[in-house]
């Protein structure tokens, strides 16, 4: 996926659905739509991970929320 207009092939999606997920009932053309969508979703995450310098250390989102919490004590 080196160019913006590249996307997964419909055949890849079809094969993954059948072989890995046991799904065999998709409408004609649906695999191509999913290929475009999966490419778009995955590239957005990949680009963000590149730009934000992906951190390989353990993290916990709940702890992040708590550490950044509002000090509502001013409202008491």
């Amino acid at each position: 996926m080196s160019a913006d207009d590249e996307r997964l092939s419909a055949g890849w999606i079809d094969e993954e659905a059948r072989v890995l997920h046991g799904i065999t009932t998709r409408a004609p053309g649906r695999d191509a739509e999913l290929a475009a969508e999966v490419t778009r979703l995955s590239r957005a995450v990949l680009d963000a991970a590149r730009e934000l310098d992906f951190d390989d250390q353990p993290g916990d989102f709940l702890s992040a929320l708590v550490s950044l919490r509002d000090d509502w004590s001013d409202a008491k």
């Binding site: 995955s42 992906f54 916990d60 992040a64």
Partner: peptide, 14 residues
């Protein structure tokens, strides 16, 4: 990609 998205979440929030 899914795990990257979750791992980035705390950083994006901060």
């Amino acid at each position: 990609r899914y795990l990257e998205a979750l791992a980035l979440r705390g950083r994006i929030l901060a």
